[in-house]
Design a binder for these strands. Structure first.
Length: 203
DNA sequence: ATCAAGATTACCT
DNA sequence: GGTAATCTTGATA
C-alpha cells in the first residue's frame, strides 16, 4: 500500500547549498505541517530565491534585525514574517550560517488535509472550482491554509512539526523561470521558479 | 515622533 | 483596473 506522504524527510545537506539550487530543487517536494497529529501537506509548485549578499529585495540585505535574524541561520530552518502587516509568508533558509539566504514558498498544490485547508481559508466546507484553485496559490494563502504563523519562525525543518519530504527532481523542461513578483528593488533578477502549467500558481 | 514603503490579498467598480 | 487592511523597518527630524 502506498501513501501520498511516503518518502524521506530532506536532510541538512539539501538545505545548506546555494539558494538558487535549493529553490529549483524544492519544486515538487512536499511541505508538511503536523498539527497535533493532523497532517496538512502540499506539493511546492512556486518559489522565489532571496540573497541578502547581493539582492536589495531580501530582508537580510540590511543586515541582522529582530525580524530577519532567522535568515542568518544555516540552511534547513523556517523563516516566517508578517507581510504588509496582514499575511504571513514562509521561507526555507538555505546556505551556510550567517549568509542570509532563503527561499520563499509562493504556492503549493494541496495534497493532504484539504478539507481543513478549505476551512482555514474560507470558513466553510463547500467550495467552487475557482475557490479550490485559489486555496494555496500565493505565499499568504499557503500560510493561512497550512496554519503557519510567526510562532513557527525558527523551527528546524529536520524536526517533526514542519518538514519537507523528498521527491524526484522536477525535469528541467518543466521548470519555468521569471522575475520575482511584487518587488521593486533588484527586480530584474530571474529568481522565481515554478512548475509550468500547474493550476495552483499565484499567477 | 512621524512617515513612507513593503517578498499580499480580497473586494470594489 | 483601484484600494483598504495593518505591522515592521529604516529614514528623517
Amino acid at each position: 500500500m502506498s501513501s501520498l506522504l511516503n518518502g524521506a524527510k530532506l536532510k541538512r545537506n539539501f538545505y545548506t547549498r546555494d539558494v538558487l539550487t535549493v529553490a529549483k530543487e524544492l519544486l515538487g517536494k512536499i511541505l508538511v505541517h503536523n498539527v497535533r497529529g493532523q497532517i496538512l501537506a502540499g506539493k511546492i509548485v512556486e518559489v522565489e530565491a532571496y540573497d541578502g549578499k547581493i539582492d536589495k529585495a531580501a530582508h537580510s540585505y540590511v543586515g541582522r534585525t529582530k525580524r530577519n535574524e532567522i535568515m542568518f541561520n544555516e540552511g534547513g530552518y523556517l523563516y516566517v514574517y508578517l507581510s504588509y502587516g496582514v499575511h504571513y509568508c514562509c521561507n526555507v533558509v538555505t546556505g551556510v550560517k550567517d549568509h542570509g539566504t532563503a527561499v520563499l514558498i509562493r504556492a503549493v498544490e494541496p495534497v493532504e488535509g484539504i478539507e481543513r485547508m478549505i476551512k482555514n481559508r474560507y470558513g466553510k466546507k463547500q467550495v467552487t472550482e475557482k475557490e479550490m484553485f485559489n486555496l494555496t496559490s500565493g505565499p499568504g494563502k499557503v500560510c493561512m491554509a497550512m496554519e503557519i504563523n510567526i510562532k513557527h519562525s525558527g523551527l528546524d525543518l529536520l524536526g517533526d512539526k514542519i518538514f519537507i519530504l523528498n521527491r524526484r527532481k522536477v525535469k528541467e523542461e518543466m521548470i519555468g523561470v521569471s522575475k520575482r513578483i511584487g518587488i521593486s528593488k533588484s527586480a530584474h533578477l530571474p529568481w522565481r521558479f515554478f512548475i509550468k502549467h500547474n493550476p495552483y500558481l499565484s499567477r
